[in-house]
Structure formats: structure tokens, C-alpha cells
Design a binder for these strands. Structure first.
Lengths: 261, 261
DNA sequence: TGAGTTATTGTCGTCGTGACAATAACTTGT
DNA sequence: ACAAGTTATTGTCACGACGACAATAACTCA
């Protein structure tokens, strides 16, 4: 589609796109080993504008796709993963989001499991490929991808964010803020973990998301008081120290929180 | 625009619209006099689909309008009011929202002042006209309107909601839920009131929104502890009993809460 | 002047939370 | 086997927020 001038294109209805901010938990980069960190996959743009820059996975909304389905679809097509959590973030519709045409983007944010997210890339800046697979649990077969235009980055790395296309840096920062608020309330931390987990692992999620360390004793009590966390009889063996109890999450009944279509 | 068949229209990009859920505080209907209640303006549809039914104010998004500007514009055009608070609610994009074409609606919700919202209509079902005006304070001149296709309704009235066009009943319920959550946290209650207000008035807002009565003593302490509420030296005269102190709201500095574009 | 009503302050028990001590259980090294 | 080291788990305690409710203050109206 071509437009004769600015006023002509502005008169038309804006284009509608759906993008997704995808978070996974991984070991932090070298140096401090044990700590976990949030990572997200980005795709390299192959066309103008912002050709060559990294951007959030997404694309135009098809006429037969529900919004959330579109988000799940471009999540799967870029990462080969199925979301453990998926929620609408915001609709961004500023006039200057794109230098070419006016685009309104409805952005979703998602959580996926660490083990699903593949191996740890050596260097984000190098555009390292993700290696998905090695799924420790039964489920849909992981798609092995070697797309050089998809790579994972540390979500909190401002140097990465500043290089993103469009207003995607703002979007990621807003998604991080939403994630922090969500985790502060309810129980979505387990969606970054496997089926069974230790309380210390949940605490690592909280610490990674909130960016500060938490008292193990107090955190334990608080988490056990919340509904949904039930203890399996099992313990995690193979550690170097006292084996921790394994827990799992069972969905409590929906408590009157409306889910907008 | 006409389409030959369903698959043809589905292949095209969905239409983009912006709608707004507008809340104001008013005296509840007859019977229990003193109590306040949430009301919202609706517009009667003059075209198919849902011709004759009541619906949220809104319309297609122009190519040169920012999303929030579009919401403020259709708020002003239907009610003649300027919002005291305006926030994006959600983007609704289900495939079956409209029986004709596929429409994605980005919905905002707004708070306006009681005094701005005009006189109390006798009966919602009758499609009573709003009478805007009688603004007790300086500001933009209120637009006097007599549009028979705009009327105010009690927001909590399920009988009203069930008659709405499209999925607008769900949207209003979701907006009410968001409003309840917002009021529980922060300080937006004063945006339904005038420049100066008594603590009892703020409490009435909370009681109307939350749907339960609150202890005046505890509410007072809690509110005074929160930032932004400062006491003027004045008292509200003319009441039947001990004159309450008048307060006003001053915006505290933004506390790191990102405002998505 | 007194009754009635609202505004405002005071008191108190409960609960959630953070700081931190203490104990339990396991691995590793000698 | 034993000690040392580390993590898991339980206990204790002080503080602040909050709800229930009593008590006082201040005004209007009859």
C-alpha cells in the first residue's frame, strides 16, 4: 500500500498489530553464578523501519484471530513455546510510534518455563541462538530452532533496551513493572518453574523479579499461608545440603476476578 | 463498505474503535435518599446492529488521533464534560463482538465530577435526558445538551446492563471491577468530587464504589495518613450538625509508576 | 436549654510482617 | 566416624496497620 502524502495516510484507519513480551527465568550471566534473572526473546527486524534492530515478536492482526490467540501464535512461532501465563498488557497507539505508518499495537505479556527456554546463550550482544529442548517433563515436543534472527536477552539490561526498535523499550519496562506488581500479589511465580518446585526456587523467582533478596524464613511462612501451594511428600535429592521439600501448585477456585475477553 | 461473504471480511484487518466507560457519582434513586451511587451515560444506537439499544459512547479511531485523545473526545462530544480521570481499560477483540464486521475496541474508563454530570434523571428506563450545567466552580463552561439519545443510568443496575448492545455489559462490569481495585489502593476518589470536600464525602465515594459501609473513625485515620490530602482552614457550613472540616487534594510526586503511552 | 446528629479523638485486641535467633538435616572433607 | 559447612525449617519478638467500639466535641433544631 502506498500513500501520496501524510494527510492521506493519516485519514485512514490505523493498522492493528499484536506483540508479545515473553519472560523466562535463567541463570544470571557469568560472575555471580547462582542467581536467577529474567530473560526475554527478541527478533531482529529484516525490513525498514529499524532494519537490523531487535524488536518484540509480533505482527499484524489477522481478521480471524482473537487477540490472545494472535499473541500465543506469535509466541509459538518465534520461540516454539507454549505460554504458562498470558495476559494483555496495554494497547499502544501513540502517533509517533513508527516513522512510516500509524500503527496501534495491542501488547501481551507472557511467562514461559525456564527449562522450556533452552540453553543459556553466551553473550546477548552476539545475537546468540536459543537452543530449545531438553524438556525434563512430559508435554508437547519442544521445537528445535536455529533462527539467527531470534535471541534471548537479559530483560533488565538497559543497554539492550535502548537499542530496541520503535517504542519497544518503554513497552518492556512497563511489562516488567506489571510483572513486579503481579508477583507481589498473587501466585504466578510458579509459572516460571516446573511442575514441582522447592520454596527456595520460588523465592529465587521473587528475588529475580523484585530485584532484592528476601528472608527465607518469612518468605516461607508467607507463601505457605497463601492458597494453592501444597506439599508433595517428596524431597529434592542430589543437592549439596539438606534436601528441601518439593511443592506443587493447584489452581484455587476463581475468586470473582473478571477475565475480559 | 460491503463484503461478498464472511471469509472475505475476515481476511481484512479488523476495524479499530475507541469507547469509554464514564462514571459519575449521584444520589441513589428514590427510597434511600442520602446514599450515593455510580452512574454512567449511555448513547442510544441509531443504526444496525443493535439499533435502538443503549451502548457505550465511542466510535471508530481516526488516523490522527492518539488513543486517549479519542476517548476524551467522545467523552466530551456525548456528555460535554472533561474527565477528571482517564485510563485505558482493556482492548476487546473477540471475534463475535459484533454480528456484522469484526471490530477491535480499545476501551477507556473515566471519572467525572458529580456536579458536572447534571440533574438526576427521574427514571433510567425512560431514557431521561441529562441536564448538564449548574457547575458550582470556575472552569470551562458546561455545555447544555438535550440529546434524547444520551441518558444516565445506575452503573450497578443489572437490568440496565443486560439490555446493552454488543458486549458492553461485560465491559461495564469489568470497568466497575477496575474502579473498585483502584479506589482500594490509591487516591482517585476525590476525582468524583469537587475541589474541596469533607472526609465524609470521600467516605461516601468509597461506600458507593465498594458497596459497603465503612467506619468513619478508621476511614478518617487511614485517609489522613495517605499523602495528598491536606486540610484547608475552612469548614463546610450550612449542614444540620457539626460542621466538618474541608480538605483538598494535592498531587504527590509521581512514584515511579510508568505511564504507558 | 436540651435533644439529636455528625465530627473527631482515644483505646484496644488482632494480625501480618520484618529482623533475627535457634535448631534440623544433609554433604563434603579428613 | 567425625567435624565443618551449608541450607532447610521452626521459634520469638517488636512494630505498625487495621477493625471494633467507646468517648468526647460541636453544631442545629425544637
Amino acid at each position: 500500500m502506498e500513500f501520496a502524502n501524510v494527510s492521506e495516510r493519516m485519514a485512514l484507519s490505523p493498522e492493528l498489530a499484536v506483540s508479545t513480551v515473553i519472560f523466562a527465568l535463567r541463570d544470571a550471566d557469568v560472575s555471580d553464578a547462582g542467581r536467577k534473572e529474567l530473560w526475554l526473546p527478541l527478533v531482529r527486524r529484516t525490513r525498514e523501519p529499524f532494519k537490523g534492530r531487535w524488536a518484540l515478536p509480533g505482527g499484524p492482526l489477522g481478521g480471524t484471530q482473537a487477540l490472545q490467540d494472535a499473541a500465543a501464535a506469535n509466541l509459538r512461532s518465534t520461540t516454539g513455546l507454549v505460554p504458562r501465563y498470558l495476559e494483555q498488557l496495554y494497547a499502544f497507539g501513540g502517533l509517533d510510534r513508527s516513522p512510516s505508518r500509524r500503527v496501534v499495537s495491542i501488547v501481551y505479556w507472557a511467562l514461559v518455563r525456564e527449562s522450556d527456554a533452552g540453553a543459556h546463550p553466551a553473550r546477548p550482544e552476539a545475537g546468540t541462538r536459543p537452543v530449545t529442548g531438553a524438556d525434563g517433563e512430559p508435554g508437547p515436543t519442544s521445537v528445535l530452532r536455529e533462527d539467527p534472527n531470534v535471541a534471548w536477552f537479559a530483560a533488565g539490561d538497559e543497554a539492550v533496551l535502548d537499542g530496541l526498535a520503535f517504542d519497544h523499550a518503554d513497552i518492556v519496562r512497563y511489562a516488567l513493572w506489571r510483572l513486579r506488581n503481579k508477583v507481589a500479589y498473587g501466585s504466578i511465580a510458579h509459572r516460571l518453574l516446573g511442575e514441582r518446585f522447592t520454596l527456595a526456587q520460588v523465592r529465587e523467582v521473587y528475588e529475580a523479579v523484585l530485584g532484592r533478596s528476601l528472608d527465607p524464613a518469612n518468605f516461607r511462612r508467607q507463601l505457605l499461608a497463601s492458597p494453592g501451594i501444597v506439599e508433595t511428600g517428596e524431597f529434592l535429592q542430589g543437592g549439596k545440603h539438606r534436601p528441601p521439600r518439593l511443592y506443587r501448585y493447584v489452581e484455587p477456585e476463581p475468586a470473582g476476578i473478571p477475565d475480559p475477553g
